[in-house]
Amino acid sequence: MQLLINGNPITVPEELQDVTLLDFLRDFAGLTGTKYGCGIGLCGACTVHLDGEATRSCQTYVSDLDDARVTTIEGLAQTFSGEGLHPVQQAWIAEGVPQCGYCQAGQIMTASALLRRVPDPTDEEIREEMSGNLCRCGTYGRISQAIARVAQEA
């Protein structure tokens, strides 16, 4: 079995087919940008894209992936046609969103999937969509602003 992670084909060893995508990414593929926070789908720190959709990697098993393209925070910038960082990453820096930063890979993956689907979300849509991603440092206000900035600049 093979996975396509950030455009790279990676062969899954037989014995790792029933591990979670989160563990596979972090402990086999060496992609540690995707974070563990709760392991039960409630914090969003482990969010990645499966075919562009925000997905909790701690709730996804490698064997369930079939042909899905996996994008992690390390590969997000490649999915953007322009130069440098993905616009959401740029906005995160411009608005100075992160505090401890640990939840932010997940926040960015959720936000970028939202903006792909809804390029100009309302404040309500942002709040609702982002509610699956906990931030203990309380960066919610700046997250909303950064998403609004991307929508405005697009």
Binding site: G30, T32, K35, I73, W92, I93, G101, A105
Partner: peptide
């Protein structure tokens, strides 16, 4: 001045090494 923390880029690109990420 509103300087931004120098690690922000590492954080938003998943390159920041937290203790859990140490190999």
């Amino acid at each position: 001045q509103d300087w931004r923390h120098h690690e922000l880029e590492a954080i938003v690109t998943g390159q920041m090494t937290y203790a859990r990420d140490v190999q």
